[in-house]
Simulated scan of single mutants.
Amino acid sequence: MMATTHAAVGLLLALPLTVVAPELAPVAALAGLAGGIFPDLDLLAGVHRRTLHFPDYYWLGALPALALAVVDPRPATVAVAWFFLAAAVHSVTDVFGAGTEARPWERTSVEAVYLHSRRRWIRPRYWVRYDGAPEDFLLTVVCFAPGLTQFGPTLRRLSLVGIAVGGGYTLVRKRLPAVEERWL
């Protein structure tokens, strides 16, 4: 899935707080956006979906952080909890997309995300055919919808930017491998 989809899911995870703790919902949404994007920084740092993707270990931070946020609901505890929760969900949901290959629509990879505790790759499921697929963009729009209606102007603008970036990426996604081969 696209980074914008993961960011949108991170924001969506904060939606329950708009009802139970509305004063903490914006910080949870911002932390969820950041946590949703964070694992994809491994595109720059090393092997994608292995270096910063931890479908098992992020939960070791997320669950205690969520418990602490329930017991001591302050902006700092909520931010840490939602950051780890979004990073954990991101790492797990990458299994439902394509593999790590440059042209994932060809389905040549058996590597969706690395499971560090088992020292092996989990196979892709292709529920979302590839990052930037039309259904991936639709998922981005649906998950960002609460950002347009349930949060303040900052999150509304970030949601619109996320939708625009996701839409642009969807339009050029299938051309990117050829551009990369030609220029890099």
Rank of each mutant, 00 (worst) to 15 (best):
L15M: 07
E135H: 14
P124I: 02
A14C: 09
L43Y: 10
Y114R: 03
A133Q: 02
L148A: 10
A88D: 04
V141W: 15
S91I: 02
A112Y: 02
P73N: 04
D131V: 01
G46Y: 04
L66Y: 01
G166V: 06
H48I: 00
R125N: 05
R120V: 05
A62S: 07
T108K: 12
E135P: 01
S159K: 00
R173H: 11
H6F: 09
L176R: 08
G10C: 10
A98C: 09
T18R: 14
T5Q: 04
R173A: 15
R125G: 06
V141R: 09
M1S: 11
G162Q: 05
F96Q: 09
C143Q: 01
Y58G: 06
Y169N: 07
H6R: 11
P73G: 00
W105Y: 11
R175G: 14
Y114W: 14
A87W: 04
A86L: 04
V19E: 11
T170I: 05
A34N: 05
A29I: 03
E23C: 00
D40W: 03
H116Q: 13
R120P: 00
L184A: 15
L60K: 11
L148G: 06
R120H: 04
W183A: 10
T108A: 06
R156G: 15
F84I: 01
E106V: 04
G32N: 11
D40S: 09
L68P: 01
V128P: 05
W183R: 13
T170F: 10
R119Q: 11
T4R: 01
F144D: 06
F83N: 04
E106F: 06
L160G: 15
S91V: 00
T18N: 10
G166A: 08
V165F: 14
S109M: 06
A45K: 11
R125Q: 14
L184V: 15
L138A: 15
P55V: 05
E181N: 07
V78H: 02
S117E: 07
L115D: 07
G61I: 00
A29V: 02
A178G: 07
T5N: 06
G36A: 02
T51N: 08
T51Y: 12
G132H: 12
R49H: 15
T77H: 09
T4W: 06
P22H: 11
R49L: 03
V172P: 04
A76H: 03
I163V: 12
Y169D: 12
R182A: 14
F38M: 10
E135Y: 11
G10N: 10
G132K: 13
P73V: 05
R157D: 15
W127Y: 14
C143N: 10
I163W: 10
R107T: 00
W59H: 07
Y114L: 04
T51F: 08
K174Q: 15
T93Y: 11
A14Y: 05
G168S: 07
A65W: 08
W82K: 03
L155S: 01
H53V: 08
G46P: 06
F83A: 05
T100F: 00
Q150E: 12
V19I: 13
I37R: 06
A87V: 04
T149M: 14
V19H: 12
Y114K: 02
R129F: 10
F84N: 03
D72V: 12
A133M: 07
G35A: 05
A102S: 13
